[in-house]
Amino acid sequence: MSSLLSALFEPGWNSSEPVLTAVVIGGGAAVVSGVVGVLTVMRGQSFAGHALADVSSAGGAAAFLLGLNPLLGFLLMGIIAAAGMESFSAHRIRERDLATGGVLGAGLGLSALLLYLDVTSKSTTGAAITVMFGSMFAMPPSVVPLALAVGTSAILAIALLYRPLLLSSLDPALARVRGVPVRLIGLCHLLVVAFAVALSAVTVGAILSTALLIGPAAVALRIAGRPGGAMLLAASIGVAATWGGILIAYDSYDWTGGHGWPVSFCIVTIIFLAYLAAGCPARDKVRAAARPGKGSVQAAGRG
């Protein structure tokens, strides 16, 4: 048993401080993303979730320029973007995605400018990569308290808004009848997503932020019957994928002869494979056939 463990966990695994930091912070980001992600996927806002991650990275670049706490920059930009998306929000999914796209374009443009200014004023060229791919092994400790606060408040907000959010995702008209302010709830939800995404974007990077938000939630929604169960499951899957990915990345230094695979690649691959495994085609076929006539329309909706 112990020989198996030592083969699995390369020597130094639990004594290396950056690895421990990554395990804690990555796990935390995975939990928050998993919980928030279930409602994001249910509401069909995966694009918004991804766009918020990309746009909030402009805030990261700004924070870098001004020497602020990076998480603060990510957070502020995420909030601005969420408000922008919601102000142009629309009933139709096509239109909502377009509004998201508009905000995303503007945000990326800002990102281009700020990164350019970063490069010219601070003469560092790595900013684009850091913002895109994150740097889980190089988290400044100053971020941790704020990260904890942001993550906790995101989960608390979901717990608080759970029922009205669920109802308004199910059917806005029904929710309005029960006295739920649907628009406001929608904005609150996007803000919570912005929080979760800012947290994960700054800790694990924009790619992983989307992967952790959408992947585990999509897998969990295929397995679990109820949203509450799906949240727990999504958080667990996210944590498992993150830790598994960190472990593989750490171990891969030895397999590849000191070169190693990037953590983000390992985690994303695990999540992707989990999605493929959970989506056994037979199940989906039954579900698609259960809605005669709507299959073709839905499939053609968007992509």
Binding site: V41, S46, F47
Partner: peptide, 13 residues
């Protein structure tokens, strides 16, 4: 097999 936006997000990541 699933919702298109999820397919897009996961392919992208």
């Amino acid at each position: 097999a699933g919702r298109p936006e999820i397919a897009t997000a996961l392919s992208l990541v």
